[in-house]
Amino acid sequence: SPQSSTVAPPSLPPYFIKGSIIQLADGELKRVEDLKTEDFIQSAEISSELKIDSSTVERIEGSHTSPNFAVVQFSVGEHRAQVSVEVLVEYPFFVFGQGWSSCCPDRTTQLLELPCTKLSVGDVCISLTLKNLR
């Protein structure tokens, strides 16, 4: 099966810090900690290029590179393509119906003040792919 690998930037992006202002596709502004599953779904519906895909966490393991990193393996979309992502352990993913989750929620809360739960195998995360333009 096809497998691709992505490495996240070594530092956390500023928009995950509690209080960051996020603009939805319809122009509405929300704080990052207030985002709901529907906000992502509705924004993707408006978008002409992006669509939401379900990415199920299949495996989480420590990185060989550094103890600060984890490798998360996802099964993406209806074709269940395998994608591995190497991220900082505090990097938050948005889980459908649940909210922000990371491999180390204590660190996420400590560094970003972002309320966060533990990312676990079986969680279904929101991810993006390109819409098929025909």
């Binding site: 691709s4 202002i21 996020i22 603009q23 596709a25 924004s43 992006l50 990415s55 993406v76 993006l128």
Partner: peptide, 25 residues
């Protein structure tokens, strides 16, 4: 008069990982 500092606004899609699976058509 002191103008309020502009607060950065981030687009919603920057918060979502872009996981594009390899597709075979």
């Amino acid at each position: 008069n002191v103008e309020p500092r502009s607060v950065p606004v981030f687009p919603w899609h920057s918060l979502v990982p872009f996981l594009a699976p390899t597709q075979s058509d």
